[in-house]
Design a protein around this nucleic acid. Structure first.
Lengths: 200, 200
DNA sequence: CGTTGTTTTGACCACTTGGTCAAATGCAAG
DNA sequence: CTTGCATTTGACCAAGTGGTCAAAACAACG
């Protein structure tokens, strides 16, 4: 039986994961260093390694924790609900996630950009199965004439692409927009875009 | 007067830039190593440093070369042309660039993801000016009722996001699609998406 | 207080990293 | 062939890297 974590353990583990998220999401796995993570977490390097046995283990812990959060919005897409409402709801939920969890979005982006060596199997299994399942639902809606006749996979890609863009390319978006806040305009645009696209 | 480059110089410089593109686009600046670039280019490390004085200089050369290529499609958007045709043409050109130059797209993505420390000024000047200029054209078209009334900046973001997604998230796209080729479906989808969006 | 387990650290290690340099090699023109 | 320049390389270096370890500091509890 493993003992319950002490308050110190909880605090330090959380600090390390948050620091790891900062660093990995900015520099990718290879560009991240334990020294930088330790410094960001406010710990010495050996102390950090007291809580996580290796660089990999921090990264894995982050990816694992991310996975549920990341696939949840799509899982919630309900085949028995109103088609347009369901898809628009999904898109808006994803946009909200970019706004509220930009570091997580960038962690994911870095992983994929670098060829996803650590999550390839998850992509080809869990993710593919989930997407195929939801794509099937969307296809049914299209066949029944409840939404426009569009390719469900590319519809999902377009939602991912547009929503994650605001987190992953944050610097660029803000450089172009200047002072204007990105997410208000993005929300409205997203609504218009998919309302028009989905109308049969 | 600097002498013209010999054939060997041309060949080796090109090999280094191509190798650098491979490595930087996959691992980002910090994750890339001179050893790996040298090996990819088929040169020894000191030999590589004979042609480029530092890691930074390779990276800079790549970014500089990329910039023109990258902004060209948007520059070509013509205010005197047919609004829908111009915008759809731009989107299709960008998609083609993702297909034909995925490494360049990922180099850019990595740079932005990592906070764009090396091109911040370019984003805030060249890019912003160019985007603002084209956004103004699009706004005029919208005001004249030639296209739907949408936010031009977010329209441009959506084009960037969707088209670059296929290069930057290539692994994920292929994992989900399985055997199916991404770009055929993407082209059709892109067409439908913006045809519907732009219709006033 | 002392004892016991947890947490923290300084010193250290082997390996990698960006980069240097003098010497060796290749090669073209006289 | 030889002179002179372009090219290539092996050996090397200081700094940074992921990771170890024994000992010290701390905390909890009787």
């Amino acid at each position: 039986m493993s003992k319950p974590p002490t308050r110190i353990q909880q605090r330090n583990r959380a600090a390390i994961l948050s620091a790891g998220l900062d660093v990995f999401s900015q520099f990718g796995f290879r560009g991240a260093t334990l020294d930088l993570i330790a410094e960001t977490a406010g710990l010495s390097k050996p102390n950090l390694l007291y809580y996580f046995p290796s660089k990999d283990s921090i990264h894995s812990a982050l990816l694992e924790r991310l996975l549920d959060t990341w696939l949840d919005p799509l899982k919630a897409l309900d085949g028995t609900g109103d088609p347009v409402k369901e898809i628009m709801g999904y898109a808006q939920r994803k946009l909200a996630m970019s706004r509220d969890f930009p570091r997580e979005s960038r962690l994911w982006a870095n992983e994929i950009l670098q060829g996803a060596p650590r999550i390839e199997s998850i992509l080809k299994n869990d993710l593919k199965v989930l997407v195929d399942e939801k794509a099937k639902i969307i296809k049914t809606w299209a066949d029944e004439g409840k939404i426009a006749d569009i390719d469900p996979h590319h519809l999902i890609f377009s939602i991912w692409a547009f929503t994650q863009h605001y987190a992953d390319f944050d610097v660029q978006v803000r450089a172009v927009l200047g002072d204007k806040a990105p997410y208000d305009g993005a929300t409205i645009f997203l609504d218009t875009l998919y309302a028009k696209l989905l109308r049969p």
